[in-house]
């Protein structure tokens, strides 16, 4: 049994009178410690699949299991806790809170988990070292470059030591050099920390960083 399991997953959106089937009977198993790339063109349903796997959206039918627990039956409180502790999200546009500084952004999951910040100081230092931003800790997102902002997002995703990192086009908004740096960082995290990483990308080069590439097109997946 994998760390993430999708069984007969379907997702339909309603656009006015029209129903659009974004995902059609998707079955997928992702194992602990894997670096998986979900690859496909725009509108293929890859981001929707990622959000469903992370519990940010609900499937129309089918089920998703994270570490053996069924996501679709979870209540808001339980689901939020799972997002805090088991998953770390990284988005294409970084999604940092603009009025919080770098440290505060990284520590958000800790704060939301009701933990005392002072107990996580050394963890913060360690992560900042890992993402190479130890000297920018008091800066706000506005004062950082795109690549630096994405490193902050990765640090935030790692701070609570989740087993799974879900990344939606993490290099989509970056130049190729910075993009490569970010992907290298993901590879390091995967290799050294043993984290399971699922990234969504439409770039062939980026997809190759994953040990496994899953193709998504017209709502269906194959390898």
């Amino acid at each position: 049994m994998g760390i993430i399991q999708a069984i007969d997953l379907c997702k339909t959106y309603k656009l006015g009178e029209v129903s659009i089937e974004v995902l059609k009977d998707v079955n997928l198993v992702i194992n602990q410690g894997e670096f998986v790339s979900l690859m496909g063109p725009s509108g293929s349903g890859k981001s929707t699949l990622l959000y469903l796997l992370g519990g940010l959206d609900k499937p129309t039918s089918g089920s998703i299991r994270l570490k053996g627990r069924e996501l679709s039956v979870m209540k808001d409180k339980e689901e939020s806790k799972m997002r805090r502790r088991e998953i770390g999200f990284v988005f294409q546009f970084y999604n940092l809170v603009p009025n919080l500084n770098l440290e505060e952004n990284i520590m958000l999951p800790i704060l939301l988990d009701g933990k005392k910040l002072k107990n996580y100081r050394s963890r913060l230092d360690e992560i900042l070292e890992l993402v190479g931003l130890a000297d920018r800790r008091k800066h706000t997102p506005r004062e950082l470059s795109g690549g630096q902002q994405q490193r902050v997002a990765i640090a935030r995703a790692l701070v609570n030591e989740p087993d799974v990192i879900l990344a939606d086009e993490p290099t989509g908004n970056l130049d190729s050099k910075t993009g490569t740096e970010i992907l290298e960082l993901f590879r390091t995290i995967n290799k050294e920390k043993g984290k399971t990483i699922v990234q969504v990308t439409h770039s062939y080069e980026a997809a190759q960083y994953g040990a496994r590439v899953i193709n998504v097109k017209d709502g269906r997946v194959w390898e």
Binding site: R83, F89, N95, N99, L108, L112
Partner: peptide, 16 residues
């Protein structure tokens, strides 16, 4: 709205 959504995405529940 977006900031709130970010917080929700990293694990803030509705009550919080």
């Amino acid at each position: 709205k977006r900031s709130l959504a970010i917080m929700r995405s990293v694990g803030m529940n509705k009550k919080q």
